[in-house]
Design a protein around this nucleic acid. Structure first.
Lengths: 353, 353
DNA sequence: CGCGGCGGTTACAACGTTGGAACAAGGGAA
DNA sequence: TTCCCTTGTTCCAACGTTGTAACCGCCGCG
């Protein structure tokens, strides 16, 4: 029987009776609609306060078609980058009156697509998706029907934009890191995180990597480009172990890892092999995670501005939700910076604090 | 107008027309209610499939008072422990038909209380709260009115149970770690993470720590018990630096950190001081995070079974949501195990994989 | 042969909210 | 004075769903 659990919820009707006005007038007050005299407004607000009225989101949603709920879909919350992102998106969203539902896709393409199409489209107003497997082509038929913002993964190759995108300039970021390694005198620079097939991010970082090698007059040795499935610690560990199996002369003297977790795994492999970082092999990653900062040695990393990324994403989504009809798709670039730490230049830096 | 965005949602009515039955019958079918003949059932299900009908959660909620939405409120998603927990809770919940809303309390007592009382009680069916600041006393008036499960933090001191609790045996866990350190021959064992005022978890771990010291015939030196605000990396770093400022003879030769992040911070401080782990100082933490496993050296840690914790928590909550009236409060203990790694016994262990 | 019971179905009324139209009360222009 | 317009308020209907009660056969029992 009626689910209000143990306490009876206060409704517009209760407030209306208390204030001696109609239900609709109370509704007008709580929604800040115009056409309400100051006298009634204060009277109603008083009643609202006394009774502790809270609008019923379900009824609202049913009537208006808006739930105030958006989802953030990420591959995995265990990845610090996504956890931090979730944190920022939550802040941004609540400052705009949205509530965020965090979903894990586990890198499953079907799951990603399901989220992108709005799950219970009737539950969500929109989705911010960090795609891993799903491609622009898969999303093309979807984006027009449901407010969707993609994080990263713009498919430069196809040139086709099928949704709003927020990303950092991955090519530039990779170029900067690699140039940094080259400037330190490394000549056999490797990369961990190649995954041409599936991940656009990976492709872009590889491209920046190759550009920088070229600009530094170095040649790209495919043996030094390690493929991985996910950007996690175990893959970093395995990839670095593989690189260390190369003949001594062919081994890398520096490695650019496409994520901090990969770098952490790679660092662990070097530790187990008894090699020094950066003495024997220099190491750099991407993400600006706390884990990389506190590693021993601290790991050089590209730090994307997650606050800006989140703000842009929520902005985009809010605009799309608020819009009546289709809007042109936007691609917004968030800033990043290269943070040089012990794992590349070897300079001891006590952490502040 | 009408918010269905761009596409028109399929409703029971549409399905009913298609199947040539009444709305209510369709409703009965989709809810798996009894009293539906197999013939009609299959006919209706066919129509459901063809039209791609999805029930409207808001309408359901409005009618039944249930939203199928539960919240997991944790202090901070950036903490790997909570991120992992969120992952498991999400799995457990969706297997029971719930959707999880993840909220960050940022360790703010008011925010915790707000969540515990159900925010928009009309939005959520229940809450799983990992409290940091809020006490049993604060929650006492709340728990009866709204389904609530607390993770950890059972206030043994007051002896008063005001809600369902799911936790590991913190006292035993701390005792095991400390006994392990003592068994290795350490005599000046320190602790990082003391916070008697606010955190019950911290109190329990301190108690287990002291018990083990006593059992090993060691005396408790308050100078070796470092206080912290949050269980994060910067606090671990700062605390260990403070311990290292003690006169040489008074310095710890082993430290039990109340979280893995504290241990990571402590390890960093030792690294900066040029000290060896575990040669100069042995280090152990709690949480079983991947970060501790991949650290160099890998950090010994108490690994709580997060899958079990999550399952128990969701079970409890589901029972409470399903119940008609008040239920007796339960306290459930999840298992943990001590994982000995390089940071205490010094034995090199290549990671598997 | 009528009547209770039961399996299967339907009609109706809510749940709390909001958009739109209708309605009362004043205020100025004709 | 009448008429229209503005301002504030109320009434009505609907959003999609489900609980309750009613309904319609049909069976088997007395």
């Amino acid at each position: 029987m009626m689910g209000g659990r143990f306490m009876a919820a206060v409704t517009l009707k209760d407030v209306a009776e208390r204030a001696g006005v109609s239900i609709k007038t109370v509704s007008n007050v709580v929604r800040n609609a115009p056409r309400v005299s100051d006298a009634t407004r204060t009277r109603v607000l008083a009643a609202v306060g006394e009774l502790g009225y809270r609008p019923n989101p379900s009824a609202r949603r049913l009537r208006t078609g808006r739930s105030g709920l958006i989802a953030l879909a990420v591959p995995d919350l265990g990845t610090p980058y996504f956890a931090e992102l979730a944190h920022h998106v939550g802040r941004e969203a609540s400052s705009r009156g949205f509530t965020v539902l965090i979903e894990e896709t586990r890198g499953d393409a079907r799951e990603e697509l399901r989220l992108a199409t709005g799950v219970g489209a009737s539950l969500l107003d929109g989705v911010i998706l960090s795609p891993l497997r799903v491609s622009s082509a898969d999303l093309a038929p979807v984006a027009d029907e449901f407010p969707l913002v993609l994080l990263g993964e713009r498919d430069y190759g196809s040139g086709q934009v099928v949704a709003d995108h927020v990303l950092i300039d991955n090519v530039a970021a990779a170029r900067e890191v690699t140039a940094h390694l080259a400037a330190l005198g490394h000549t056999r620079i490797g990369a961990i995180g190649v995954d041409e097939q599936r991940s656009a991010t990976s492709r872009q970082r590889l491209e920046g990597f190759q550009q920088a090698l070229h600009e530094a007059g170095l040649t790209y040795d495919p043996r030094l480009a390690a493929r991985v499935g996910e950007f996690d610690r175990p893959n970093g560990l395995a990839a670095m172990r593989t690189l260390l199996e190369l003949p001594t002369a062919a081994r890398p003297d520096a490695v650019f890892c496409f994520s901090d977790l990969l770098a952490v795994g790679a660092r662990r492999a070097l530790y187990e092999a008894g090699l020094d970082v950066p003495g024997d092999v220099a190491l750099a990653g991407v993400d600006g995670s706390g884990e990389a900062l506190y590693a021993t040695p601290s790991l050089t990393s590209v730090v994307p501005d997650k606050a800006v990324i989140s703000a842009l994403a929520v902005d985009c989504l809010a605009a799309r939700i608020g819009a009546e009809g289709p809007l042109p798709y936007e691609v917004r670039i968030a800033p990043h910076r290269l943070e040089v730490r012990e794992s590349t230049d070897g300079v001891r830096r006590p952490l502040p604090g």
